[in-house]
């Protein structure tokens, strides 16, 4: 018993000594690298490849074709879906910035001893099941839903508002709701680090509030702002739950992809849609990543 213990101890010691050596990368970084190469890089590469194949009688044939990629543009439903999705993602990102910035600024600068509690209150919706929360909006926004019921009973409107649910409006609202914490948290992290004395010094030197914001607060919050923009835009582009649950029949990239893999059973077309989406996501990451540090955000 004692012997086995000391033996495992020796083995552990050897492993840990290896970890300490500078060429120990294979032990520490190796496993995660293997995981991401095998089940992240390879699947994404395969998606681009499958998009160039055909499908016959529910089986993927390996004949090379570009018709799926061209179908992303030539088929009106796909084209409209991409236009809708991009526009809604842009509006959602803008809304999230406008809503989150003052909120994050207020908590970061005036939260005082309640900062951490307020932050946890932001985190709670962020980490709870999103299907459940979107379902909550379904109950609120319906024609006979909570909001319409409340407004009618208060006498503010005589007839229920029909465009609250299953429209572009509800997709925009749902996406803003879902991704808002992704904007708040990085912004907060940036603004919290901001040195108060810089602002005071600027005021002492005669700067106006507008100048203080433009020349001190805004530039120093760029990493958080860009981080938030990256996440909100990318996740809005790739959203599926919101358009599927509260988006009615509005054409959206996510629902087109899921359709191709489901009832539509056209995997290569779905893969092509996914590939184009992936290129957009990659492009956004590539062009904006330099302005932020994802590791610092959470």
């Amino acid at each position: 018993m004692v012997e086995t213990h000391s033996r495992t101890d020796t083995i552990l010691r050897t492993i840990l000594d290896r970890v300490r050596e500078s060429n120990s990368f294979l032990v520490t970084g190796g496993p995660i690298l293997l995981l991401e190469v095998l089940f992240f890089l390879a699947p994404v590469a395969i998606m681009f490849y499958i998009a160039t194949t055909g499908m016959e009688s529910l089986a993927v044939t390996l004949d090379f074709t570009l018709s799926n990629y061209t179908a992303v543009y030539t088929r009106a439903a796909n084209r409209v879906a991409f236009i809708n999705t991009t526009l809604i993602a842009l509006v959602t990102t803008t809304t999230a910035v406008v809503v989150a910035y003052p909120f994050a600024y207020y908590i970061a600068r005036f939260g005082g001893k309640y900062k951490n509690v307020l932050l946890v209150l932001v985190m709670i919706p962020f980490w709870t099941n999103y299907i459940v929360r979107v379902y909550g909006w379904q109950i609120i926004l319906g024609t006979e839903g909570v909001l319409n019921g409340l407004l009618v009973s208060l006498g503010l409107i005589s007839e229920p508002i029909g465009w609250l649910l299953n429209t572009k409006f509800s997709i925009w609202l749902g996406l803003t709701y879902l991704w808002l914490p992704f904007m708040i948290l990085p912004l907060y992290t940036s603004l919290e680090k901001l040195d108060e004395s810089l602002i005071e010094a600027a005021y002492d030197l005669g700067a106006s509030r507008r100048e203080v914001f433009k020349r001190i607060v805004l530039p120093l919050s760029i990493p958080g702002l860009v981080g938030g923009i990256i996440f909100v835009f990318i996740f809005s582009m790739g959203a599926y739950i919101v358009p599927a649950m509260i988006g009615g029949g509005e054409l959206f990239v996510g629902t087109r992809i899921a359709y191709a893999f489901g009832i539509g059973s056209d995997w290569p077309l779905g893969a092509a849609l996914g590939s184009v989406l992936m290129l957009i996501v990659g492009g956004v990451l590539w062009s904006l990543m330099g302005y932020t540090d994802i590791e610092e955000m959470f």
């Binding site: 991401e36 990318i234 790739g238 959203a239 996510g254 992809i257 899921a258 779905g270 893969a271």
Partner: peptide
Amino acid sequence: RALVIAPMTIPGLILGIALLLW
């Protein structure tokens, strides 16, 4: 760093279908 952080920035939908195909 890029490879171990990228998977959390990719929409789940893309990862889901890519894994299904793989």
